[in-house]
Simulated assay, not measured.
Amino acid sequence: MKSLPATFTTRAALQAGVHPRDLYHWRDDGEVIELSRGVFRHADAPEPSLPELLAVGMRAPEAIVCCVSAAVAHGLTDEMEPAVQIAVSSARSAPRIVYPPTSVFRFDAETFEVGLSQVEAAPGEFVRIYDPA
């Protein structure tokens, strides 16, 4: 288990040779915490500052945090968002994420990565996000 990063997916665990039975045993024993379906974090890892963004970023690594979610992460608003807002390229299919609640916007493929930045969602773990401008 220690060979896996602080936050990892089921796929990463399987590729590291972890049997699914062991992964769910770790979850049931509290050794790992399930942030979202198929996204786990070591229980002894430092607390993430943006756990919802971290979970969504792991589930949809090609997506970019946008709109109100980006404004909240950049400290530009104190609005309570009902769902994590992410953008995907119009050339890709939209991810289906139930938890944390997620709203998906489709942005033009040609300008999709304009203004792209990163935010540290947990120590040493970054999520793609649009910059404040």
Score class of each variant (00 low, 15 high):
24 Y>C: 05
26 W>S: 06
26 W>K: 04
27 R>G: 07
27 R>D: 08
28 D>R: 15
33 I>K: 13
33 I>L: 13
34 E>S: 02
34 E>P: 00
35 L>N: 07
35 L>G: 09
36 S>G: 13
36 S>K: 03
38 G>K: 00
38 G>R: 01
38 G>F: 02
40 F>H: 13
40 F>N: 06
41 R>H: 06
41 R>C: 09
41 R>L: 10
43 A>M: 03
44 D>Y: 12
45 A>S: 13
46 P>Q: 12
48 P>R: 03
48 P>Q: 05
50 L>P: 06
51 P>V: 02
52 E>D: 15
53 L>Y: 12
56 V>M: 11
56 V>P: 13
57 G>Y: 06
57 G>I: 00
58 M>Y: 09
58 M>P: 00
60 A>M: 04
60 A>Q: 06
61 P>H: 04
64 I>F: 03
64 I>P: 10
66 C>T: 15
69 S>Y: 09
70 A>C: 00
70 A>W: 00
71 A>N: 11
74 H>S: 12
75 G>E: 14
76 L>P: 01
78 D>Y: 03
78 D>F: 11
79 E>N: 12
80 M>V: 14
80 M>T: 14
81 E>I: 14
81 E>Y: 12
82 P>F: 12
83 A>S: 14
83 A>I: 04
83 A>C: 05
84 V>N: 00
85 Q>E: 15
86 I>T: 12
89 S>I: 00
89 S>F: 01
89 S>A: 03
91 A>Y: 02
91 A>K: 08
91 A>I: 04
91 A>G: 10
94 A>Y: 01
94 A>P: 02
94 A>C: 13
94 A>H: 04
95 P>T: 08
95 P>W: 04
96 R>V: 15
98 V>H: 09
100 P>S: 09
101 P>F: 07
103 S>T: 15
104 V>S: 09
104 V>R: 07
104 V>A: 08
106 R>H: 02
108 D>S: 10
108 D>H: 10
108 D>F: 00
109 A>G: 02
111 T>R: 07
111 T>Q: 05
112 F>I: 02
113 E>K: 14
115 G>L: 06
115 G>A: 05
115 G>S: 05
117 S>N: 12
121 A>Q: 08
122 A>L: 06
122 A>E: 08
123 P>Q: 11
